[in-house]
């Protein structure tokens, strides 16, 4: 596994700082170029927000980074949803 790139670290840091996730996974799905990511975020801040609003929130936090990417895919759950899914 290659070390995390600067972009990867930056994305993770911004999401962590602003969403205070209880769980976060960032996966490089680019197959080499490092410009495509899939992110899974579990955060209390998604509570009572419909999907579109959650995605807009994430898109807003990563507005600069997403411009540099070829693909960006996200999954957003509240801790409660995440707990249900894994039990």
């Amino acid at each position: 596994m290659a070390a995390e790139t600067e972009l990867e670290l930056e994305i993770k840091k911004k999401l962590t700082d602003q969403l205070e996730p209880t769980h976060i996974e960032l996966k490089d799905i680019s197959g080499g170029c490092g410009k495509s990511f899939e992110v899974l975020i579990v955060s209390e801040k998604f509570k009572d927000k419909p999907l579109l609003e959650r995605h807009r929130l994430v898109n807003g936090i990563l507005s600069e980074e997403i411009k540099l990417l070829h693909a960006f895919s996200q999954k957003t759950y509240t801790p409660e949803q995440w707990h249900k899914m894994n039990n």
């Binding site: 999907l51 579109l52 995605h55 895919s73 996200q74 999954k75």
Partner: peptide
């Protein structure tokens, strides 16, 4: 109205 991108459409 915007429904969303691929992630949202898949989830819905």
């Amino acid at each position: 109205e915007l429904v969303g991108g691929a992630d949202i459409v898949l989830q819905l």
